[in-house]
Every structure is written in structure tokens, then in C-alpha cells.
Amino acid sequence: MKKIVEVKDVIFSYDNEHDALKGVSFDVEEGSYTVILGHNGSGKSTIAKLIAGLLAIKSGSIAVDGKLMSLENIAEIRKMMGIVFQNPDNQFIASTVREDIAFGLENYEVDPLKMDAIIEKYAGLVNMKEYLDKEPSNLSGGQKQRVAIAGILAMRPRLLIFDEATSMLDPTGKEEIKKIIYDLHTDDTLTILSITHDIEEALKADKIIVLNEGRVYKIGSPKEIFSDAKGLRDIGLDIPFTYKVKEAFADVGIRLQEHNKVEDLVEELWSLSKN
């Protein structure tokens, strides 16, 4: 599978004294849903900003779509990606939903006559069509985050980065955004890179990259990552609900299979109870 992001031996420091990233390497495959998991301060948000070219690396390299990122080509590289940040308030630039979605289109010099159709299409995709003329103060956190997603999708990115996009939302807002992420994953032309500490969200990923104290702790599928419960707990992370149930049953001598979906776990428990 083609690699859309290649991160090699990246070292980064905010203060030139302490390295926030200490030689991080990983790849993101095109069309995949990749999750970067880590506790606070592990360097996961830093890596998102480096990939988006918002921070400059100290050493190492980052290539996007085969192009080695540099100051000269950053604008060109940025055109193929979009990033949804943590705080929904701090990325709402314009005074209405409609104008906020148009902001990126204006920057990419899209013909104003074509903008209305694009705005309506992408607002519809995140269920915000009826809020097009609303101001940010009239929207919930989840709705503002949906506007941010629509604004970025309207720019037709090939790589969509979610930088802890659900962490400041209430449970309803979190679920809304997660559903949008899962729905977007059905589009094979769009690569999703989600930075999160939500282990339940990570379960749906194709690949998980676990960061710990500025280093890659482990890379693998959800099954490979969450089978290492002890290792994850040692670095301050936890395992998903289905894996916890499996662990609890194992303690009393019952072996269950690993499930990423609660429904599959219930089915196995149901068939076990019948036997």
C-alpha cells in the first residue's frame, strides 16, 4: 500500500533543551485510518503539528505523498491535508457557518460562484446544512467541530488529521464527531490520522501507533496493541472495554476471543452461556 506520510527519526524540541520527540519513525498508508495513541505529554499533538508543517523539526525527515517537507514546498503539501484541532472555538474564524466553510476555499482561490454549492454539499455531509447562517455563539462544541470538519473537507484534502478533536466535547459531541470519522473512513481516497487518547475510538483504526515520552512504544493493529494490557498500563494507558471483559474472564479461567465490537463479545458470551 502506498505511504502518504513517512516520518523518519524525527527529533523535535520546544525549548532546545528537552526533546519532546526523541527519534520518532512511522508510516501512514494511503486510505487508512491510523490512530496515534498516547497519554498527555507523549508528543502525539506535536507530531500532528509537525506533519501539518506548523512546527519545524530539529532533525529527521517528514515526507508527505513522497515529497520531503521543506519550507519551500510546505504550502503545496498543506493543500493536500487538513487538520481539525482540539478547541472548537479557536478554529472558527468567520462570523457564520457559511462564511467559515468558505474561508479555506477563498484561500485556495476557488471561484466564488462555485462556493455555495461546495459549502452546501460539505455542510450536508456533517449534518450542518440547517445551521449555515448561524453564528459560533449559537452552536454547541460538537456543532462547531462539525463546521471545522466541513471547512476542511470542502478543501478536498487527501489526508485528514484529527488532533484530539473530541477531547473538549461533551459525550454527545464526542459521539457525533466519532461517527463522522468512521463514516469518512468508508472513502478510500481519504486518509485519516487521528491523534487521541480515546482507546475506544482507536479500536476502529486500521493501525495504531502508541507514543510514550516522545518515543514510539509500539505499532500494530488494534488486536496487537490491546493484547499487551500490562505494557499499556505501565505507560499510563488502558485497554478497551471488550478487552477488559476478556481479561476478567481469563482471571476466572474462561478464555474468550479478542473482540473489537461489544456486539461480538455479547454473542460469544451468549453462546458460552447456552453451552
Partner: peptide, 11 residues
């Protein structure tokens, strides 16, 4: 954060 968001959207 706003500057980052604007820059990331091609401004």
C-alpha cells in the same frame, strides 16, 4: 491556536 488553524487552512 487560531493562527495555526488559519495557516492549516491555507491562509
Amino acid at each position: 491556536e487560531l493562527a495555526n488553524a488559519m495557516e492549516a487552512r491555507g491562509y
